[in-house]
Amino acid sequence: MKLVECPRDAMQGIHEFIPTALKAAYINLLLKAGFDTLDFGSFVSSKAIPQMQDTKDVLEKLDLSSTSTKLLAIAANLRGAEEAVACPEISYVGFPFSISETFQHRNTNSSMLASLNTVDQILELCDRHQKTAVIYLSMGFGNPYGDPYSFDIVGEWASSLAGLGTKILSLADTTGVSTAEQIRILMPMLQKQFPDIECGLHLHSTPEKRIEKITAAYESGCRRFDSALRGFGGCPMAKDDLTGNIATEELLAFLESRKESTGINDYYWNEALQLSTEVFSYN
């Protein structure tokens, strides 16, 4: 079971700038809580995502001396990936590959074919620097732009990414449109098609749909879950009305009900919950 907590995703759409020291204090508590990975920041244009302009400064304030949690940073192009791999503290570099042409342009200012070449370069870059790339299949459950979508399209693009040497593939529901039925079809499909790739889910959801999506994912064999404390977040590049993440506390409660060991330290998790009230008081 790999639990990926996503403070980066939770914070990135907030317009008022969250002080760097507060971000770092919050992430330090999450580091002590014991997640497998923290999606903590991104190396992207400060004009596109102003909230993430201090990722390097946050990184300098993190205490990694007593944690086994690994850090993941998002990059939207090769230059961002080069910045990320230059940081020895970062283990994973995430790249959002959209199976919607419209969203790929909106999110990375690049076409899908050009972005496939970027993935190839990032994979090679990560290999050279002993990092691992996490490739997100964004808009993996459909898109609001009218671009073509089907399960076959998901499989075709996943196959292209696998052919480049992708080791971790995360199916991402960028706008919260996924259904439990889709999850129950797509997760087993990808796991069967790519047995040597670690397949995960990065789901967005309205609160009333979270548990049914978590249940469908777990029962479909997913063992890599992205989530965010209290379900904060959403993708500001997709649309103005953000749909939040799967809430980590609901995911933890579900896994515990299924007798799964989460490895989360309750003390530090509750400390992070308390501090989150201050972090997300900005808007």
Rank of each mutant, 00 (worst) to 15 (best):
C199Y: 15
P50M: 06
E83G: 02
S205C: 12
Q53Y: 01
A33R: 00
Q12L: 05
R79D: 15
Y136G: 08
Q53K: 10
E156T: 12
G234A: 09
F225H: 08
E5Q: 14
A21R: 11
N143G: 03
S159F: 09
T179I: 08
S178I: 07
A10Q: 01
N245I: 03
D266S: 14
S91P: 02
D152P: 08
C235R: 05
T175K: 03
D196S: 15
L251A: 11
L252N: 03
E89T: 05
L203I: 14
T215S: 15
E250N: 11
Q121D: 07
E219T: 08
P88E: 13
K47T: 11
G221E: 13
D152T: 15
K192E: 15
K167R: 14
S227P: 10
L31F: 13
I27Y: 04
L171A: 00
K192L: 13
I168S: 10
V134I: 15
K259Q: 14
A217T: 03
M139Y: 03
M112P: 02
Y136P: 07
A253L: 11
E124S: 10
I74T: 07
Q130T: 14
T174Y: 01
F103W: 05
N109C: 02
M11N: 00
S150M: 10
Y136C: 11
E89W: 05
S261I: 11
E271C: 13
N270C: 13
S220W: 07
T102G: 05
A114S: 07
Y92S: 06
V4H: 01
E101N: 10
I246S: 00
W269Y: 15
Y282M: 07
R223Y: 14
M237K: 06
L31W: 12
Y92C: 05
L22R: 01
N28S: 06
S110H: 00
K2Y: 15
E124G: 00
R258D: 10
N283I: 09
G94Y: 00
H129P: 02
E260L: 01
T206P: 00
L255I: 13
G155N: 09
H105G: 01
G13F: 09
N107E: 04
T248G: 04
E250Q: 10
G233S: 08
F35E: 07
Q182F: 07
V177C: 15
L29Y: 05
S46C: 09
Y136L: 10
R128T: 06
A217H: 01
A247G: 10
T132W: 00
F97D: 02
S205K: 03
Q12S: 02
R128E: 12
A158C: 10
G231L: 13
L125C: 11
S110L: 01
D240G: 15
L30M: 12
L123F: 05
I197F: 07
K2N: 15
K259W: 05
D241A: 11
A84N: 04
C235M: 12
Y218G: 01
Q53H: 06
V44E: 04
S160P: 00
A84H: 03
R128S: 12
